Simulated assay, not measured.
Amino acid sequence: MKDSIKAFYELPLSTGCRLVDFEHTGIVTLWDDVHVLIVTGKVLVSGVVDVKLVPHQYDDQPEYWEIEVVGGCGGRLKEAIPGPHPEPVWTTAISLKGIIGTQGVEVIGASKRERIPLETFVTLR
């Protein structure tokens, strides 16, 4: 397994996707340890609104599981809508089943990283 993960990371980088900045993160527990990471941010590049959360691959469970905020994967970029309108934002989410470190998760954007410890996860009832 370690050789296959090493081989994966040696593959060429994509030119269609980039790390993007995020503004807010939060984790909610819906029921019985079903955790969901929610991340929001501003659309800074016109048309790049396809934002995904992409977890790193590990052989063993790390202290903080790293999850990248990636935008612009696939499709055509759209022109900005002219005229006054609220600043566009995006929201994306991912289930954390099988991708939580022993201490929590770490969200990685273009210019910052944010660790979210397990003890700060919020339960919705």
Rank of each mutant, 00 (worst) to 15 (best):
D3E: 13
S4R: 13
S4N: 10
I5H: 05
F8Q: 03
Y9T: 10
Y9D: 01
E10H: 12
S14P: 08
T15P: 01
C17D: 00
D21Q: 05
F22D: 01
F22L: 01
E23L: 05
E23H: 06
H24Q: 05
T25D: 04
G26H: 05
V28R: 05
L30A: 05
W31L: 02
I38Q: 08
I38K: 13
V39Y: 03
T40S: 14
V43F: 06
V45M: 08
S46Y: 01
D50E: 06
V51S: 04
V51M: 00
V51E: 04
L53W: 07
V54P: 02
V54E: 13
P55G: 09
H56D: 15
H56V: 15
Q57M: 15
Y58M: 14
D59Q: 12
D59A: 15
D60A: 15
D60L: 15
Q61W: 13
E63I: 11
W65H: 06
W65D: 05
E66R: 15
E66I: 11
V69P: 02
G71H: 07
C73P: 08
R76A: 09
A80F: 04
A80K: 14
A80G: 08
P82T: 10
G83F: 06
G83W: 02
H85W: 03
H85E: 01
E87F: 01
P88S: 04
V89C: 02
W90I: 07
W90F: 15
I94L: 10
S95F: 12
K97A: 15
G98T: 14
G98K: 14
I99F: 07
I100M: 09
G101Q: 09
Q103K: 14
G104Y: 08
V105G: 00
V105Y: 00
V107E: 04
V107T: 07
A110S: 11
K112P: 03
R113S: 12
E114W: 03
R115S: 07
R115C: 07
P117L: 09
P117D: 09
T120A: 07
F121I: 11
V122E: 09
V122G: 03
